[in-house]
Design a protein around this nucleic acid. Sequence first.
RNA 1: CGCGGGAUAGAGCAACUGGCAGCUCGCAAGGCUCAUAACCUUGAGGUUCCGGGUUCGAAUCCCGGUCCCGCAA
Length: 336
Amino acid sequence: MSRISVIFFGTSDFAVPALKKLAADSRYQIIEVVTQPDKPAGRKQELHSSPIKVEAEKLGLKILQPPRLSSPTREEEKESIFPPLDGEGSGGVDLFIVASYGKIIPKSVLDIPKHGTLNIHPSLLPKYRGPSPIQVAILNGDTETGVTIIKLDEEMDHGPIVAQRILSVESGILYKTLHNRLAEAGATLLLECLSDYISEKTKPTAQDHSKATFTKIITKDDGRINWQDSVEEIDRQIRAYENWPVAWTTLDGKKLKIFDAAPYNPSQPPLSLRGGVPPLNLRGGEGELFLAGKDLIVHCARGNLEIKKLQLEGAKKITAREFANGYKNLLGKVMQ
RNA sequence: CGCGGGAUAGAGCAACUGGCAGCUCGCAAGGCUCAUAACCUUGAGGUUCCGGGUUCGAAUCCCGGUCCCGCAA
C-alpha cells in the first residue's frame, strides 16, 4: 500500500508535536509544509521563522510561506502553492492537516485533497470554538478540557468530529503546561484516528451546533488586572495569560507584569513568628501590597494573592522575594 | 539611526552637588529556641559591564563600545 500524501499547515508551537509525529510515521508522506511568512519581531525587527518552519527545516521538508492562500479564481497561484504531484498515478494529495495555522483557509482549498482537511483544535468542541480555547478553559476554571479532531468546513471550527479526547485540568495549572499537554494529546489523537478516517472505518459526526460557544482573540488589554476582581479570577487571569500577553498592573506609574501567583490562604500562614507578626487579617485597599513573612501579598476584592514572579518595566523578570529585597518603601503601596 | 529604562558582592537594589562603595536577602561559623521563612553575634564575598578622557581624587562628569530589558511592531 502506498503512502498517504499529506500537506501540513501550521505555524505556532501547538502544531509542532503533530508535525513531528506525522513525519516520524512511515505510513504518511509529507509533501510540503505550509506556514506563515517570516515576520519582523523583537527590538531590532529581525525576521523570525515560525516554530513550524524551524521544525520543518530540521526534518528536511519542503516549506511554503505564501502571504495568502490562493483564491479559486487565480489558478496560477494555486498551482504554485499546490504543485501537481510527481510520478504517475498519484493523482493528487490525499489529505491536508491544519494545526494553528493562523489564517483562514478558503473552502476551495480545503476541498483539494481526496480526503479533505483535518484540524486539531484544543477544546472539547463544540465548546470553545475560536482562537483562544486554552486560555478560556483556564479563565473559566474548568476542571477538564480536551482536544478534538474535526474535518474542516467553511465555518470556523464547525466541521464534523473525527475524534475527541478529554484531559483533566489540575487547579493552578499554567497556560504553557496545559498548552503543551494539549498539543501532545492532539498529535497523538490525530495519529490514532487517521488511518481509520482514511479508510472510512470511522465517519465524522456532526457537532451539536446548539451547544457551540466561542472564544475571542486576546488583546493586550485583556492582560490588565483589575484588583476589584476576586482573587480567584485574578489568579486564573495570570495563569491563562502567563505566556502572552502576561497579566499586568502598574506600580508607581510603571508597568508591572505578573508571571506567577497563587491565592494566599491566611488559614495556613507560617506558624508563629516571634519577631514579626504575620498579617493574618490583611485588609486594605484593593491592590495594596503587604509582606507576610517574606512573601509578597496583594489585597484583592475578596481575599489576597501571593505574587511569586514578576517583572517591572525595563527590568528583568525576578522572584517576588528578590523584588521585595530591593524595592524601597514597598509596603502599603497600591497597584492599579 | 523608532521611543525609553538599565548594568555596583551570589540575588535584588542604594550611594544627592566627584571625597573611606552601602542596604535587604542569601551564604559560612557560632549562640538562643520544643520549634520556624524567627531572633542574637561574628565572618567571607567588589577590576562599580568594557575602552579611552577630565581630575589631586571618578561608581559618579565627558567620548566611544558591548550586553540586558520595557514599549512599539
